[in-house]
Computed example of a mutant assay.
Amino acid sequence: MRIVFMGTPTFAVPSLRTLIEEGYNVVAVVSQPDRPKGRKKVLTPPPVKEAALELGLPVIQPERMRSEEAVAEVASYNPDLIITAAYGQILPKAVLDLPKFGCINVHGSLLPRYRGGAPIQRSIINGESETGVTIMYMAIGLDTGDMLSRVALPITDEDNSGTMFEKLSLAGAQLLKETLPPLLAGELPAVAQNEDEATYASNLTREDERIDWTQSARSIFNQVRGLSPMAGAFTYLNNEPFKIWACKPLSAHADATTVGTIIAASSEGITVQTGDGQLLLTQVQPAGKRMMDVADWLQGARAIIGVELVSAVQE
């Protein structure tokens, strides 16, 4: 059994390591190209590449998986099975048709809900109480293939995208471990997805990060934790970007204060009026500074009671 594994971020690393630990013959690993990272734009390999090199596996990094050269290089490894986990590119039919056991994907949602590139973040932003991992056959459509196995995990108020990525990556690796033996033995039936239940989790944009203070405290709380610790949600304070990394909703009661207005500040956090209820900001990042607890920021901040946080720079 010759397996080609495709993945890029940290989410995919436990699945790759599990394959090796279980004794599967991973003949090559495909990952996205190295990218500039950080303020100094240092060219940095993706986590899956680092893990693969540590494990002594050959790595392929095509810029475009759809190119003839990339397809030919993958074909040269004569794979019996291709396994993907958060690879980041759609595979062309020429690749999908290569392995006799097909191509399977470890996807971070309970399909058919949240197909697409940002299922974990979107699940949290939308206030879901549950998500999970689905392993399915890959098809031409976006996460439309028949399902082989699923596992569900709760999303708690203490979770953000970072904690859920970690939980789901480990759950996906365990599910892969349990799925492969019956799959390869021809004993695991595939189940078609219900198209009527399908929803999509499109990649996040800058607008998804912008806070609209007319929304409820609960909605903004979900947005902040859905974007943390990756991009972060932002607003503007005194016409400068002001990121919010952690917060919690307070009791939802009516208040005549203008939405977005800071109505209290203490070592516990900054209280902001929203369209429905109040939000306690506990971890922030002022423009040009590092992420910090509100108590640390308040030590050097100007008087902020009554200051309005806004969704756009005011002319």
Rank of each mutant, 00 (worst) to 15 (best):
D143W: 08
T163L: 03
V133S: 10
M138Y: 03
A139Y: 03
V151Y: 06
G141Y: 03
T156R: 13
R150F: 10
A139W: 02
T156M: 02
S161P: 09
G145T: 05
I140E: 15
T156I: 00
G141H: 03
D143G: 08
L142K: 01
V151I: 14
Y137P: 00
N160E: 00
R150V: 14
Y137I: 05
A152R: 12
V133L: 12
D157K: 13
T156C: 06
I140T: 15
G132M: 11
L148S: 06
N160V: 04
G132C: 02
D159C: 07
P154L: 03
L153K: 15
L148I: 06
T163A: 00
M136Y: 14
G145E: 02
P154Y: 01
E158Q: 06
A139E: 14
L153F: 13
T144M: 01
T144E: 09
G141E: 14
R150Q: 15
L142W: 02
D157G: 05
E158I: 00
P154K: 04
G132I: 06
S161F: 11
D146Q: 09
T131S: 14
D146M: 11
D159I: 03
V151P: 04
D157L: 15
L142H: 07
E158H: 07
V151D: 09
S149N: 13
M136N: 11
L148K: 03
M147W: 02
I135P: 10
L153V: 15
A152Q: 13
T156D: 03
G145K: 07
L142I: 10
Y137L: 09
S149A: 15
T134L: 03
E158F: 07
N160R: 01
R150C: 13
L148G: 03
L153P: 11
D157T: 14
T163Q: 08
D159W: 06
S161Y: 13
Y137S: 05
S149W: 05
T163E: 10
S149T: 09
E158N: 12
G141W: 01
A152I: 13
D159H: 10
M136T: 03
D146K: 15
D157Q: 13
G162W: 10
V133H: 08
L148D: 02
I140Y: 09
L153C: 15
I140M: 14
S161E: 15
G162M: 06
I135S: 05
D159F: 09
I135W: 08
T163H: 04
G132A: 04
L148H: 01
V151E: 11
A139V: 10
E158Y: 08
D143L: 12
Y137M: 04
A152V: 13
T163F: 04
L153W: 10
D143I: 13
I155H: 05
T156Y: 03
G145A: 07
T144A: 01
S149D: 13
A152L: 12
A139M: 04
T163C: 07
L153T: 14
T144Y: 01
R150H: 11
